[in-house]
Design a protein around this nucleic acid. Structure first.
Lengths: 200, 200
DNA sequence: ACAAAAACATAACAACTGTTATGATAAAAT
DNA sequence: ATTTTATCATAACAGTTGTTATGTTTTTGT
């Protein structure tokens, strides 16, 4: 092994390239038609690459999902920097929305995974882990707001975190199916109104 | 053809039996693993039955989806009977929620379809038709409420219909993934609060 | 009773699936 | 320089897929 160098292509980098190719195929063809061969072709390589970097198809699929999810979490954290109060929560939630056209593809992958998980309990569990993380994340923010007396004291934090997730999830799938029904402004308005209704 | 009789098994009845078998397989195995052979086996028959009553797999799948959707619409209409005002809308929306354990299976099918549609534009369009119908349906109710001055006059009806659909959709998928996070009482509370916030 | 049509069963088709084994080539380590 | 390891290509495997064709049986219409 060579020393750490920013100009070398590490093993993880290559895994990400494969996952990105998978991501593109999922968006274009759907998850159940995302075959090893389709991914390899999208990558301009053969299936040898895919099998070399991932134990099996499911490991690769989960890696691709994890990338989408992690991406959102990081963006939420970054967007929250420097903000406080309700505006901070509002900004964070909005990051998860498909406000831009490009965000829609991430939502396509997310929705595809949700559907693909039905009947595959271990995938449902994987998905649940991410919802749990999100809930934990939002609950933390709500707790801070409650401590600062910016939202009402009688609010059930877990319930409200779930409600926010449900709202975002509903809008996300709504945009995937009916892109014309949710403008960026409308999405923001719905989140803003919901959060303001929690205000003290 | 014999005369109309309630005790005969019509062609449509048999199609429904096939669709119900498909529904069960979708819930248990997932949509992409719902093969013709699996459906036939669930039905206690062979693939000859399935191919005889449906042009191809997609026609059968769409028929099964339509049944789930129609079922919800009918139930909503039935539940609305005799009710007026905000309580009427509230009751209708709640019908679509997975309040009971048995409702969860319908939501599994719905979510499976959503994911399965990704990358299949004609299925997205089919789904969109149903969202359009739902929106139209809810908009009608909202319009009545607005005319009766029971909700604020400045409310954008289409936006609010979409918001309600998104809320229900978010809760539904939430229950499918995290069944422990939404009690029936909590689901009702969220819908109730949302609708009350529209009150005049 | 007889013919026509509906309701299935069976089997075969070609295409596609994930996985695995085996090679070949290039990089890295010693 | 040589050996080991990482990276990929190729090919074959056994299984599954939707679809179609061809039967066989049952129901129905006349």
């Amino acid at each position: 092994m060579s020393a750490d160098d920013s100009s070398v292509r590490t093993q993880r980098d290559r895994r990400i390239e494969v996952a990105n190719a998978a991501w593109r195929v999922i968006v274009r063809e759907g998850l159940d038609r995302t075959s090893m061969r389709a991914i390899a072709q999208e990558l301009g390589a053969t299936t040898g690459v895919v099998t070399h970097y991932f134990r099996d198809k499911e490991a690769m699929i989960l890696f691709a999902l994890e990338r989408v999810f992690e991406h959102v979490l990081v963006d939420m954290q970054a967007a929250a920097q420097g903000l406080t109060g309700l505006a901070r929560l509002e900004k964070m939630i909005c990051i998860a929305l498909p406000l831009k056209m490009s965000d829609k593809d991430d939502w396509k992958v997310w929705v595809a995974f949700l559907g693909y998980s039905i009947g595959r309990e271990h995938l449902v569990i994987e998905h649940r882990k991410r919802y749990d993380l999100l809930r934990q994340f939002i609950s933390q923010e709500l707790t801070n707001l409650q401590t600062a007396k910016l939202i009402r004291a009688d609010i059930d934090i877990t319930l409200e975190a779930n409600a926010l997730i449900a709202l975002v999830d509903g809008i996300g799938t709504g945009v995937v199916i009916c892109p014309d029904q949710f403008s960026a402004k409308q999405q923001r308005y719905l989140v803003q109104r919901h959060i303001n209704s929690l205000s003290a």
